[in-house]
Design a protein around this nucleic acid. Sequence first.
RNA 1: GCGGAUGUGGUGAAAUUGGUAGACACGCUAGACUUAGGAUCUAGUGCCGAGAGGUGUGCGGGUUCGAGUCCCUCCAUCCGCACCA
Length: 930
Amino acid sequence: MEYRFQEIEKKWQHFWKINQTYRVDETSTKPTFYVLDMFPYPSGAGLHVGHPLGYIASDIFARYKKHIGFNVLHPMGYDSFGLPAEQYAIQTGQHPAKTTIENIDRYREQLDKLGFNYDWSREIRTSSPAYYKWTQWIFMQLFNSWYNPITNKAASINELINEFEKQGLSAVSLSALHGGIETEITPFSASEWATFTEQKQQEILMNFRLAYLGESYVNWCPVLGTVLANDEVVNGLSERGGHPVERKLLKQWSMRITAYAQRLLDGLDGVDWFDSIKETQRNWIGRSEGASVHFPLLNHEGSIEVFTTRPDTLFGVSFLTLAPEHELVNQLTTDEQRAAVATYVSTSKNRSERERMADVNTISGVFTGSYATHPFTKEPIPIWVGDYVLVGYGTGAVMAVPAHDERDYKFATHFSLAIKQVISPTSDHDFSTGAWTEKSGTMINSDFLNGLSVTEAVKRMISDIAEHGYGSKRINYRLRDAVFGRQRYWGEPIPVYFKGDLPYLIPADQLPLDLPEVDKYLPTEDGDPPLGRATHWKFEEVYEYEKSTMPGWAGSSWYFIRYLDPSNELQLASPEKIAYWGNVDLYMGGAEHATGHLLYSRFWCKFLHDLGIVPFDEPFKKMINQGMILGRSSFVYRVVGEQTFVSAGLKDSYDTTPIHVDISLVNNDELDLEGFKAWRSEYKDASFILESSGVYLCGHEVEKMSKSKYNVQTPDELVDRFGADTLRMYEMFLGPVEQSKPWDTKGITGVHGFLKKYWRLFHLDGTFEVNETTPTKEHFKTLHKTIRKIREDLDRFSFNTGVSNFMICVNELTESKCNSRQILEPLTVLLAPYAPHITEELWEKLGHEPGSLYEAAYPEFNPDYLIESDYEYPVSFNGKMRFKVSLPVSLSIEEIQATILSQAETIKWLEGKAPKKVIIVPGKIVNVVI
RNA sequence: GCGGAUGUGGUGAAAUUGGUAGACACGCUAGACUUAGGAUCUAGUGCCGAGAGGUGUGCGGGUUCGAGUCCCUCCAUCCGCACCA
């Protein structure tokens, strides 16, 4: 009987569904294991072979954990709010909910064909009101919380109000403020607080809330008509669509993620993730230690605060530079300089993010005409404006030390400003060509620092500026607060209404705040977001709701918690269920979310931890990032101006344009000519210049898989041709799961052949037959060698070598014609995680209860079967392997040496010389040194 | 510029602690079989060489009896960040 994979797979997928084989609950006393895949955004294109790579790996691992005695949670759902569905809605007028459901159904159909062990009863969709009710609920908790810098955790805003009522605003609570909006707050007493209006009180509190409405510079994308988070902007263009992005000052909902900067950094030490991801996050958080220093203004009140990581070079300061957006620019500009400064500031404000980045090498700036005073020397320091200083980082002002900073050096040289050397370099350095920026050398021209090393000087200077009240030690982060509002329709409504311009939360019992229907998915004529079109959508029929919606990352920042208790209507998830499952043991997904999703989920998890809702403060213990599967695009070469196509081997003799051609028309680089003509009406009369062999060969290139490149391979087509078990194993066999690799279907026959061979082990002349007698020692050896390797491979997520080891095992058993039940039965359990369908079928044929394979215990390795009486020693001379000798393992080192040296081969390789030394590692190797 | 990763046959790759480099598979070459199949089986296949043998893990050096693996220098490719003070 042949291996009828289509019948078998259909049968078992149906069986698992009807019997709810993969449903899990919290009644088991087994240890738990939570395996999670990054849930997909259901796009219209469906799945291509790259998507399931991680799903297959995690599925194999989840099944393995189940077999070795864990209660395994392996859920799946959809990240179903987002831009593409909305863009499609704008074009077609179709409600995004409708396309989203269609896409989800398509995804589900594709996923079901691959035989995953998801517990679909736990499915979640971020766009369903039952789910986003709780996304909104979390937003409300964030709005009602502030970050207490003393306890170093989030707490109720009422605690802060109490403090204001009792003591007013102290300097300590002020230090809780950091991030994109640093509004100056004047300290106040308790009695002053009591006299403040509601408006004023709320405005003050807004500076502390973890979800807050504040004026800040945002990434504004005019084409998309919305703001974007920093991680949604790539090289000054929007991540989705590649549209230009500008900086704009807007009143926006934001998340005070900066409050968690240090904890987000520290938490990385405790998670088992790839170093590359951890480093990317550390980089993104961007902690730097230094000092803040105040430079008093000359002839003005107040001072300019700068942040520096090099307080040791303070005596080398020759000017200060302010960002063009710095609030003091206007005040400090003298009348003579006003015109020049105004021009400069408006030019740089109007430059898009992209222009500014493209233009890093141009030095530009303008003198304000004003001076500050050096805190120690009391010398006047000119104040300049330059757009190399960023308003969003540090204080938006820098102290320029041209002798020891490259940018300051360029600026000083360009504008002929003083360059004061304060460090004597440790090696030859020519100050006429550039700055000495190494953190090494001896301090000079620096008063009390003279003679100290740079490291000593940093410490000394920090303590001196603190002592004199000129400033203090400061830690600065590159991380910005995350913009939370999107001027879009297809997202969670923010559960807020306005009385005047003050935002208030809607009552919790009115959650979810449903997304209203609108006539169009475009902004209103007044420039309001699409929700502005819902004219009757008002709180208590009077107050306007917030019209922006939440960003794509809101729903995905906590979904891993909802899977634990997906249909709970009263709570995010019950504390019992959260405690039962805990956080994610293995998270599988792409590395592209390093600075987005993975940072935001950590932030929300820590926040929910502070509130006592979850007992863990990191969401994902271990993470594996699967590599991207790249497409192999095929090209035809069209002669310029003609409908003639030249085969790849001849294209260099013509003037041609390469054109992407659908890979379904290409087999082993050979083009299906008739298929090509039928593909596009414009090609129906195409003529071809063929190779001498009479075929048309296509060129190829490895690129990202995409519809527009016609290089998309869908899993469905391969499942139809080879079966899900083959596709599962082939995707694993391609190489290490974390590595990027081009997709190539060629090798799939090898894996398919393996499954057929495995199937044949159980069949004799076409009928199922296994031998009930005791297998030979060799057969047991093959089995146990495989058990050991497979378990080791699974434990280190080496799925590709796992597949190889199954092949070796089946090859050996085939060769020795083994069909013993005592071998094939354990082998079937061993293979079950990789190929669940074929193994279920054979398990049933072996006489077991249908479906019981999933519950079967994984085979244990028994080393007794691997004990050998002889070992074949490789004998090398000066490290080069020359021949092998089989010797009993019981021999002593002396006996081995004597035997080896008496071999005829040895005498030949010694060429009459005496060996200087013989290295013998028992059970490993013999090396003769001549 | 900073940080991270990766360089092994025609191809995907393996070698877990320094111990037989290239397992397993694709492809290719030759052959067998046949209800002519996207079937199955046999032999070969790193490179040079008829062979003995030589040589070989990006380049160059080092440590070691022994290095793909450890150390140093350089090169290339990919990814992330980037006027971050």
